[in-house]
Computed example of a mutant assay.
Amino acid sequence: MLRTRRAWTALILGAVALAACDGAPELSEVAAIDRAPGNITVTPDKRIIFSLHQFFEPDWRVAEWTDKGLQPFPTSDIASAKDPDVTLHSVLGIQSDSQGVVWMLDNGMRGGAVPKLVAWDTRNNKLHRIIELPQPITPPDAFVNDLAVDETHGKIFISDPAGGGNAALIVVDIASGGAKRVLQGHDSVVPEDRDMVIDGEPVEIKQPDGSTVRPRVGVNPIALDAKNEWLYYGPMHGGSLYRIAVSDLIDTEAKSLGEKVERYGRKPISDGISIDNDGNIYVTDVENNAVGVIDRSTEYRIYLTDPRLSWPDALSFGPDNRLYTVSNQLHRSAVLHAGVETATPPFYIFSFKPLAGGVAGR
């Protein structure tokens, strides 16, 4: 019986994937959980803390995986605090610094609140800092998504895909709490016109009139190198990874900042990136149930793939020099599956051995 053209294509692509992953590291299951994770950070004390993705409308906003299982984070539950400035609404981006202060990026969308950064001191179990991000730093359609904490320069860099055409980066000064919106509408942050197709099915959003659209998401993955010299980023729906020197990002006038941006290399449609101490960049390859790597040659290749990596969302190094990631089936949420949720637990936290160690928390 003759094979169909589709079958031959699947066979060839499968062989390519296997070849790309030949000798790939083992994907180790850290936890199977009943709530869908968003982004993840592993503190210097090896506490595994992650946001819970708002597309699934979770009862908790942030959680921690402990020897007792899944626990809300922080333990004093600021999500239920009476102070509206402290309440967590919808956290995605999350990152620990070297002192175990976990910075949570609350986009405020579930409560119609002003986006903000909330920092929690895990070693002393107390609130460390709140920095609000009001208009015009965040426009009405802001969707502040991911962040990179720079302790060398006292800055936090935020990716905001917003409405696509007005996507931008945000630079926050930790000491003053001041912020600026930069590179808005630049080619390096706006999405390309390409569909996201996972397991043979395009991702679609149902509109109020019942029709569907295929999303185009701007800048999302963002990460600093180990020395805090370069910031790497790119649009989720885009085939290129870009970088800019941190010194330029901090000091250059906004009108000429675009001239400082460099295209670094090719990447797949991706949700998160992380960088090891040798400059290898790990990329969540959501279309291929994989994690890829862009090595120092700037060429992209699949590093490991596994059917359980159903929408690998984010990455974080632990103090054990392993790289942690999550799987949340986001393309099966009602938001991205034409209004019909088909995601089923378990969702996962994994770890694997990278090519080199990295900075814990990122």
Rank of each mutant, 00 (worst) to 15 (best):
226 A>D: 13
20 A>Y: 07
273 I>H: 07
100 G>F: 08
228 N>E: 14
335 V>E: 12
148 A>E: 05
95 Q>A: 13
54 Q>R: 13
273 I>Y: 04
60 W>Q: 11
298 T>C: 02
49 I>T: 12
355 L>N: 14
92 L>H: 09
288 N>P: 07
231 L>H: 15
21 C>S: 06
16 V>E: 11
170 I>F: 07
200 G>L: 08
36 A>V: 04
297 S>I: 00
270 S>Y: 12
208 P>M: 06
119 A>Q: 15
14 G>N: 10
251 D>L: 00
312 P>L: 06
95 Q>V: 02
80 S>Y: 05
65 W>F: 00
267 K>D: 03
360 A>K: 11
15 A>R: 14
175 A>D: 07
340 V>S: 01
283 V>F: 04
200 G>Q: 04
319 P>L: 01
84 P>I: 01
207 Q>S: 09
113 A>T: 01
42 V>G: 05
34 D>F: 08
310 S>Q: 06
233 Y>G: 05
240 S>F: 05
35 R>Y: 15
296 R>N: 04
174 I>D: 04
300 Y>S: 03
161 P>S: 05
85 D>K: 15
110 R>N: 12
7 A>S: 14
181 R>P: 00
270 S>D: 01
117 L>H: 15
269 I>E: 03
351 S>G: 14
313 D>C: 04
201 E>V: 15
42 V>Y: 06
34 D>N: 14
207 Q>L: 11
101 V>C: 12
216 R>N: 08
24 A>S: 14
350 F>Y: 07
262 E>K: 04
286 V>R: 00
254 A>L: 13
206 K>F: 11
279 G>F: 14
286 V>N: 00
225 D>N: 15
170 I>W: 13
276 D>E: 10
179 A>G: 05
280 N>L: 09
17 A>Q: 13
163 G>Q: 11
48 I>S: 06
345 P>Q: 01
246 V>N: 11
286 V>E: 00
95 Q>R: 09
348 Y>A: 11
295 D>N: 13
128 H>L: 14
277 N>Y: 11
310 S>N: 09
249 L>H: 02
272 G>R: 08
273 I>G: 07
310 S>A: 09
